[in-house]
Write a protein that binds this DNA or RNA. Structure first.
Lengths: 202, 202
DNA sequence: GCTGTCATGTATCGTGCTGATACATCGCGT
DNA sequence: ACGCGATGTATCAGCACGATACATGACAGC
């Protein structure tokens, strides 16, 4: 989601559109690279909503490295508030690829308990996906030709890797949270993977 | 790319839009799942281009007015030709995530030398991406906060895994070609099990 | 027999992103 | 003096998504 990414970036410092895109690319890595065709309309929407302000940047000859840009975008007070709400909103959007990546990129600005909720929600989602893929592969795996099966197996392994990665992140988060009370970083992961065989009701 | 996926599917047998979507989802796995909002317009485009034909499969006594009939889509001769061109076109589009996945899903219908070109082109692309990520991580890795670095490292490992996967596929392709220098030319896959256009429960 | 609800089936619409394209200026090497 | 790559803003057609609407057959439970 561009909205959260732009606001998160502008929370660190005001920027030009061009710089936003560069920082975005390096921040999200190959994960996602937005184009100007979506960035500029998004900036306009955010400005109309009042989350950011749009100032023409004057030329300061001797001053800092204020390059000769045309428009500088800055997070407003409302925008700061809105960003906090977005980062703290642990709805379904926070768990899909896009939303999770955007939130993870700004975890440094996120409360610890929210971080945990996001990680666990994402993990729940990916586990669900993995199990679906696994059973689909078990059902139809024999009938697939070699290449399609390879594609599915590679995808399954990727998702499986993501589950393990998220598990590590969660464990690390737990051990971080318990640096004070206990000297043992290994906190027992309770509630580990109770899998109801037929559905997902709490 | 929906175009190649739809044509590839219809090359096996005629289908309804609904079934196309289901088969597409199971064929591409979690790799990609197109929605009706893109599928139906795509079917219309393909029909206008003449690659597929659109037949109303009305059944039952038609006293019912205001009834939406089922539509069966079938690959035309031109469509078959066009599909062959698409599968054999080893342009840049064949090497990005979308194009490669669509082509791989129909590798069984693809010539062996084209398969190799697609695999090697994709591998070249992914290696390039991996090296870019690796050097970017080496340059800025120390300055990143823990979460962003985790995101980048996980992404790098994923891409690295894909490189190794592609390498294995390529090696296997080579050994296949050498163990079977000129085998009996497997022509069109005769499907012994045919699905009727009206429902697909076997 | 009546009702709910699930799978099947076709279709559209608003919103948003991509890739291409178009400008323009700056810094720098040659 | 000249080009050329990086900086910088902006638009557009095409395509995909997610939500939504409508409709029918099957099948279970009351």
């Amino acid at each position: 989601m561009l909205e959260i990414a732009v606001l998160g970036l502008l929370n660190e410092s005001p920027m030009h559109g061009y710089e936003i895109r560069k920082r975005l690319a390096s921040l999200l890595g190959a994960f996602r690279a937005f184009s100007y065709g979506s960035l500029y309309p998004s900036l306009r929407r955010l400005a109309e909503a009042g989350w950011i302000s749009e100032e023409a940047s004057m030329q300061a000859p001797g001053a800092a490295r204020s390059r000769r840009g045309k428009r500088v975008y800055r997070l407003t007070a409302e925008g700061k508030e809105h960003l906090a709400e977005l980062l703290a909103d642990v709805g379904p959007d926070a768990f899909d690829e896009e939303g999770f990546g955007a939130r993870l990129a700004f975890f440094a600005q996120t409360r610890s308990d929210i971080r945990l909720q996001v990680l666990e929600g994402r993990r729940r989602r990916v586990v669900e996906q993995r199990d679906g893929m696994k059973s689909a592969l078990a059902r139809t795996g024999e009938r697939l030709d070699r290449y399609t099966r390879e594609l599915h197996e590679h995808g399954l392994e990727s998702v499986d890797r993501e589950v393990r990665w998220l598990t590590e992140l969660i464990e690390h988060e737990h051990s971080d949270a318990s640096t004070r009370p206990s000297d043992h970083p290994v906190t027992t992961v309770k509630n580990s993977e109770w899998r109801s065989p037929d559905g997902f009701k709490t």
